[in-house]
């Protein structure tokens, strides 16, 4: 599946374009072209042009992917990269959890050090470094943004 070269981004492009077209079609105020509108084009014109272009580019990429016939492999997953990919997914999950926890608890300066600590452990840093980095980074953000710029981190 992953060795399909340009096919996968091509399919996503087509799907995204079709979704925009569906939005325009189902929303009657999104007029594309009409003599009744100012200058002959309406609010839907530019999204329509972009959607059509995304579909065309997507189809071209799918065709190119088929032509590549599995010879182009963007995800060259060596054993090391497989491990790295797991770390990337874990980091993305940590960011997501941090944002969710911030939204629910509304306590940014509680979520931040936990997140920084978890990221450092994910990156296999030593305990001492992790603790020092977590404290240092949290203090830096607190002093610069909360105390210095008076930013209230309210989601």
């Amino acid at each position: 599946m992953i060795k399909k070269g340009d096919t996968i981004p091509g399919i996503f492009s087509v799907l995204f374009g079709v979704l925009i077209l569906a939005y325009i079609k189902t929303n009657e105020k999104m007029v594309v072209m009409s003599a009744d509108t100012y200058g002959g084009i309406g609010p839907g014109f530019f999204p329509f042009v972009c959607a059509v272009a995304l579909v065309i580019c997507g189809v071209l990429l799918v065709l190119r992917g088929i032509k590549q016939n599995g010879n182009v492999d963007y995800f060259q997953l060596t054993p090391e990269r497989k491990e790295n990919l797991k770390s990337v997914v874990m980091l993305a999950a940590l960011v997501f959890i941090m944002l969710l926890a911030w939204k629910v608890s509304k306590m940014f300066f509680l979520c931040l050090p936990i997140y920084v600590f978890a990221v450092n452990k994910l990156l296999k840093r030593s305990w001492l470094f992790t603790i020092l980095f977590t404290v240092g980074m949290t203090l830096f953000i607190y002093l610069l943004f909360r105390v210095g710029f008076h930013i209230r981190f309210r989601p």
């Binding site: 981004p9 492009s13 999104m30 609010p43 530019f46 999204p47 972009c50 272009a53 997507g58 990429l61």
Partner: peptide
């Protein structure tokens, strides 16, 4: 070029999110 075009139009499409500059219609 095709990839650049695709992303150019994606960026252009994303720029249409929000109020329409002429009619004020809410889009996406």
């Amino acid at each position: 070029v095709v990839k650049g075009l695709m992303l150019g139009f994606l960026g252009l499409g994303l720029s249409t999110v929000g109020l329409d500059p002429v009619t004020g219609l809410k889009r996406f």
